[in-house]
């Protein structure tokens, strides 16, 4: 008798249910702390730049991942960028239908090599396009806690 056959004829299939009961608290790190403090306190984005590699990181990094040099000078890169790519999300995490579709985009920040993934806000599916200029919309300062949720989304650029 083959092994598989022996194995399949001994018992009815049963299973065991359990969960892994852990939770996490993450620090933002040296560069992440600076980035989220600037969002919380000043409503702007910071980056770091490696001149040798000619690259500007947003969100900032404490080091250049091309050459491993330390990057500790933070520059204010503003809050304006453009849609580098996007997707439209119709479903929630559990597979249920969203009340209205949401556009999730990679926003490249103007003048940098970096980008932020976030929702578009106040831009319709008909309007959205690659290259569309957008600007970050923050929660009111008093409600900001220092996290990615301090950004409501990216909307049309205010002039």
């Amino acid at each position: 008798m083959a092994t598989t056959e022996k194995m399949s004829k001994t018992t009815t299939p049963t299973h065991w249910d359990a969960d892994i009961p852990v939770n996490y608290v993450y620090t933002y790190g040296l560069a992440g702390e600076a980035f989220f403090r600037a969002i919380k306190d000043r409503g702007t984005f910071l980056g770091t730049r490696c001149d040798a590699c000619d690259i500007t990181y947003v969100p900032p990094k404490a080091y250049c991942d091309r050459c491993l040099e330390a990057l500790d000078k933070y520059i204010d890169v503003g809050t304006v960028g453009y849609v580098d790519t996007f997707t439209v999300s119709f479903k929630n995490m559990d597979g249920s239908e969203k009340p209205r579709p949401r556009i999730l985009a990679m926003i490249k920040i103007e003048g940098t090599d970096g980008g932020i993934i976030h929702y578009l806000d106040g831009i319709s599916i008909e309007e959205v396009a690659l290259g569309l200029p957008v600007q970050a919309i923050f929660k009111p300062k008093a409600q900001r806690k220092g996290g990615i949720e301090d950004i409501i989304g990216f909307g049309p650029v205010k002039r």
Binding site: D19, T27, G147
Partner: peptide
């Protein structure tokens, strides 16, 4: 600053 995560790891 920190961020917290309560994963839902049910198996």
């Amino acid at each position: 600053l920190t961020t917290a995560w309560q994963p839902n790891l049910a198996y």
